[in-house]
Protein backbone atom coordinates (compact mmCIF):
# COMPACT_ATOMS: atom_id res chain seq x y z
CA UNK A 1 0.00 0.00 0.00
CA UNK A 2 1.29 3.45 -0.84
CA UNK A 3 -0.25 6.93 -0.94
CA UNK A 4 1.60 9.83 -2.55
CA UNK A 5 0.15 13.27 -1.93
CA UNK A 6 1.11 16.69 -3.26
CA UNK A 7 0.03 19.50 -0.94
CA UNK A 8 -0.18 22.87 -2.63
CA UNK A 9 -0.83 26.44 -1.70
CA UNK A 10 0.74 29.84 -1.19
CA UNK A 11 3.38 30.57 1.47
CA UNK A 12 1.61 31.32 4.74
CA UNK A 13 -1.62 29.39 3.93
CA UNK A 14 -0.81 26.57 6.31
CA UNK A 15 -0.36 23.50 4.13
CA UNK A 16 2.09 22.17 6.68
CA UNK A 17 -0.64 21.65 9.27
CA UNK A 18 -2.47 19.46 6.75
CA UNK A 19 0.76 17.55 6.30
CA UNK A 20 1.23 17.23 10.05
CA UNK A 21 -2.30 15.85 10.50
CA UNK A 22 -1.99 13.23 7.78
CA UNK A 23 1.51 12.44 9.02
CA UNK A 24 0.28 11.85 12.55
CA UNK A 25 -2.49 9.54 11.31
CA UNK A 26 -0.01 7.62 9.17
CA UNK A 27 2.46 7.13 12.01
CA UNK A 28 -0.38 5.82 14.19
CA UNK A 29 -1.06 3.26 11.47
CA UNK A 30 2.58 2.20 11.60
CA UNK A 31 3.24 3.38 8.05
CA UNK A 32 6.54 4.64 6.71
CA UNK A 33 6.46 8.34 5.91
CA UNK A 34 8.52 10.92 4.07
CA UNK A 35 7.46 14.50 3.85
CA UNK A 36 9.44 17.14 2.02
CA UNK A 37 8.60 20.74 2.78
CA UNK A 38 9.41 24.15 1.39
CA UNK A 39 11.25 26.51 3.70
CA UNK A 40 12.96 29.74 2.78
CA UNK A 41 12.37 32.27 0.08
CA UNK A 42 9.07 30.94 -1.39
CA UNK A 43 7.42 31.17 2.01
CA UNK A 44 7.22 34.92 1.35
CA UNK A 45 3.94 34.74 -0.57
CA UNK A 46 5.29 32.47 -3.31
CA UNK A 47 3.92 29.11 -4.44
CA UNK A 48 4.70 26.30 -2.00
CA UNK A 49 4.31 22.55 -2.18
CA UNK A 50 4.92 19.61 0.07
CA UNK A 51 5.44 16.02 -1.02
CA UNK A 52 3.87 13.60 1.43
CA UNK A 53 4.57 9.92 0.91
CA UNK A 54 3.04 7.10 2.96
CA UNK A 55 3.75 3.42 2.46
CA UNK A 56 3.82 0.09 4.24
CA UNK A 57 7.30 -0.41 2.73
CA UNK A 58 10.38 1.73 3.19
CA UNK A 59 10.26 4.81 0.92
CA UNK A 60 13.27 5.63 -1.26
CA UNK A 61 12.82 9.13 -2.69
CA UNK A 62 11.82 12.24 -0.74
CA UNK A 63 10.26 13.53 -3.95
CA UNK A 64 7.22 11.96 -5.61
CA UNK A 65 8.01 11.13 -9.25
CA UNK A 66 6.04 12.93 -11.95
CA UNK A 67 2.79 11.18 -12.84
CA UNK A 68 2.76 9.17 -9.61
CA UNK A 69 0.81 11.32 -7.13
CA UNK A 70 -2.47 9.74 -5.99
CA UNK A 71 -3.79 13.05 -4.76
CA UNK A 72 -3.26 16.75 -5.11
CA UNK A 73 -4.64 18.58 -2.10
CA UNK A 74 -4.63 22.31 -2.66
CA UNK A 75 -5.82 25.20 -0.53
CA UNK A 76 -5.81 27.48 -3.58
CA UNK A 77 -7.39 26.81 -7.01
CA UNK A 78 -4.66 28.09 -9.35
CA UNK A 79 -1.99 26.35 -7.28
CA UNK A 80 -3.85 23.04 -7.64
CA UNK A 81 -3.22 23.12 -11.39
CA UNK A 82 0.48 23.88 -11.09
CA UNK A 83 1.12 20.28 -10.06
CA UNK A 84 -0.95 18.44 -12.69
CA UNK A 85 2.20 16.89 -14.21
CA UNK A 86 2.70 15.16 -10.84
CA UNK A 87 -0.79 13.59 -10.80
CA UNK A 88 -1.26 9.99 -11.88
CA UNK A 89 -3.82 9.06 -14.52
CA UNK A 90 -6.18 7.74 -11.80
CA UNK A 91 -5.38 10.47 -9.30
CA UNK A 92 -7.80 12.87 -7.62
CA UNK A 93 -7.49 16.60 -7.29
CA UNK A 94 -9.03 18.14 -4.16
CA UNK A 95 -9.03 21.90 -4.13
CA UNK A 96 -10.35 24.99 -2.44
CA UNK A 97 -12.14 27.35 -4.84
CA UNK A 98 -11.32 30.56 -2.97
CA UNK A 99 -8.53 32.26 -4.91
CA UNK A 100 -5.58 33.89 -3.17
CA UNK A 101 -4.72 36.84 -5.36
CA UNK A 102 -1.37 38.48 -4.64
CA UNK A 103 -0.20 38.90 -8.24
CA UNK A 104 -1.67 41.17 -10.89
CA UNK A 105 -1.76 38.57 -13.66
CA UNK A 106 -3.98 36.15 -11.75
CA UNK A 107 -6.11 34.29 -14.32
CA UNK A 108 -9.83 34.80 -14.85
CA UNK A 109 -11.52 32.82 -12.08
CA UNK A 110 -14.26 31.40 -14.36
CA UNK A 111 -11.69 30.04 -16.79
CA UNK A 112 -9.76 28.63 -13.84
CA UNK A 113 -12.85 26.82 -12.52
CA UNK A 114 -13.77 25.45 -15.94
CA UNK A 115 -10.24 24.09 -16.26
CA UNK A 116 -10.59 22.34 -12.89
CA UNK A 117 -14.05 21.02 -13.85
CA UNK A 118 -12.63 19.49 -17.01
CA UNK A 119 -10.46 17.10 -14.99
CA UNK A 120 -11.47 13.46 -14.76
CA UNK A 121 -11.58 13.20 -10.97
CA UNK A 122 -11.81 16.25 -8.78
CA UNK A 123 -13.50 17.73 -5.70
CA UNK A 124 -13.72 21.53 -5.65
CA UNK A 125 -15.26 23.25 -2.67
CA UNK A 126 -15.41 26.72 -1.21
CA UNK A 127 -13.61 25.80 1.98
CA UNK A 128 -13.25 29.40 3.14
CA UNK A 129 -17.03 29.98 3.18
CA UNK A 130 -17.71 26.59 4.71
CA UNK A 131 -15.21 27.29 7.48
CA UNK A 132 -16.70 30.73 8.08
CA UNK A 133 -20.21 29.26 8.34
CA UNK A 134 -18.89 26.95 11.05
CA UNK A 135 -17.40 29.90 12.91
CA UNK A 136 -13.95 28.51 12.09
CA UNK A 137 -12.65 30.98 9.54
CA UNK A 138 -9.07 29.87 10.16
CA UNK A 139 -9.79 26.18 9.61
CA UNK A 140 -10.36 26.24 5.84
CA UNK A 141 -7.36 23.95 5.49
CA UNK A 142 -9.05 21.36 7.74
CA UNK A 143 -12.16 21.52 5.52
CA UNK A 144 -9.93 20.75 2.55
CA UNK A 145 -8.25 17.90 4.40
CA UNK A 146 -11.70 16.56 5.34
CA UNK A 147 -12.70 16.61 1.68
CA UNK A 148 -9.61 14.55 0.89
CA UNK A 149 -10.10 11.92 3.62
CA UNK A 150 -12.47 9.68 1.60
CA UNK A 151 -9.62 9.35 -0.93
CA UNK A 152 -6.90 8.50 1.58
CA UNK A 153 -6.84 4.86 2.61
CA UNK A 154 -6.70 5.65 6.32
CA UNK A 155 -9.68 5.28 8.68
CA UNK A 156 -11.49 8.58 9.32
CA UNK A 157 -11.16 8.22 13.11
CA UNK A 158 -7.37 8.30 12.70
CA UNK A 159 -7.64 11.85 11.33
CA UNK A 160 -9.89 12.84 14.22
CA UNK A 161 -7.31 11.44 16.64
CA UNK A 162 -4.58 13.35 14.90
CA UNK A 163 -6.48 16.63 15.25
CA UNK A 164 -7.15 15.97 18.93
CA UNK A 165 -3.46 15.40 19.43
CA UNK A 166 -2.03 18.18 17.33
CA UNK A 167 -4.30 20.82 18.85
CA UNK A 168 -4.28 19.39 22.37
CA UNK A 169 -2.49 22.40 23.83
CA UNK A 170 -4.95 24.82 22.27
CA UNK A 171 -8.00 23.72 24.24
CA UNK A 172 -11.26 21.83 23.64
CA UNK A 173 -12.84 24.63 21.66
CA UNK A 174 -10.15 24.70 19.00
CA UNK A 175 -10.28 20.90 18.75
CA UNK A 176 -14.07 20.93 18.33
CA UNK A 177 -13.94 23.60 15.64
CA UNK A 178 -11.30 21.73 13.66
CA UNK A 179 -13.16 18.45 13.97
CA UNK A 180 -16.30 20.17 12.67
CA UNK A 181 -14.30 21.61 9.75
CA UNK A 182 -12.88 18.17 8.96
CA UNK A 183 -16.38 16.63 9.04
CA UNK A 184 -17.86 19.34 6.80
CA UNK A 185 -15.21 18.64 4.17
CA UNK A 186 -15.73 14.89 4.37
CA UNK A 187 -19.52 15.25 4.05
CA UNK A 188 -19.09 17.47 1.03
CA UNK A 189 -17.05 14.89 -0.83
CA UNK A 190 -19.36 12.03 0.11
CA UNK A 191 -22.45 13.94 -1.03
CA UNK A 192 -20.92 15.19 -4.27
CA UNK A 193 -19.24 12.15 -5.77
Amino acid sequence: MKIDIILAGVGGQGILSIAATIGYAAIEMGLFLKQSEVHGMSQRGGDVQSHLRLSDKEIASDLIPFGKADLIISVEPMESLRYLPMLSKDGWLITNTTPFININNYPDVDILMSKISSLKQFVALDADSMAKDLGAARSANMVILGAATPHIKIGYEKFENAIRNIFKNKGEEVIAVNLAALKAGKDYTEQNS
Partner: peptide
Amino acid sequence: VAIALNLPDERGDAIPDIVAGRPPSMC
Protein backbone atom coordinates in the same frame (compact mmCIF):
# COMPACT_ATOMS: atom_id res chain seq x y z
CA VAL B 1 17.30 9.30 -13.34
CA ALA B 2 14.56 7.32 -15.15
CA ILE B 3 15.31 9.13 -18.39
CA ALA B 4 19.04 8.52 -17.96
CA LEU B 5 18.33 4.79 -17.57
CA ASN B 6 15.87 4.65 -20.50
CA LEU B 7 13.05 3.79 -18.13
CA PRO B 8 9.52 5.07 -18.78
CA ASP B 9 9.00 8.69 -17.73
CA GLU B 10 5.25 9.05 -17.25
CA ARG B 11 3.83 12.46 -16.52
CA GLY B 12 0.38 13.77 -15.73
CA ASP B 13 -1.29 16.54 -17.74
CA ALA B 14 0.78 19.58 -18.63
CA ILE B 15 0.44 22.73 -16.54
CA PRO B 16 -2.38 24.76 -18.13
CA ASP B 17 -1.24 28.03 -19.75
CA ILE B 18 -3.46 30.09 -17.45
CA VAL B 19 -1.35 29.18 -14.42
CA ALA B 20 0.72 32.27 -13.68
CA GLY B 21 4.04 32.36 -11.86
CA ARG B 22 3.80 33.39 -8.23
CA PRO B 23 7.19 34.72 -7.17
CA PRO B 24 7.85 35.53 -3.52
CA SER B 25 7.12 39.12 -2.57
CA MET B 26 7.47 41.48 0.38
CA CYS B 27 4.76 41.05 2.99
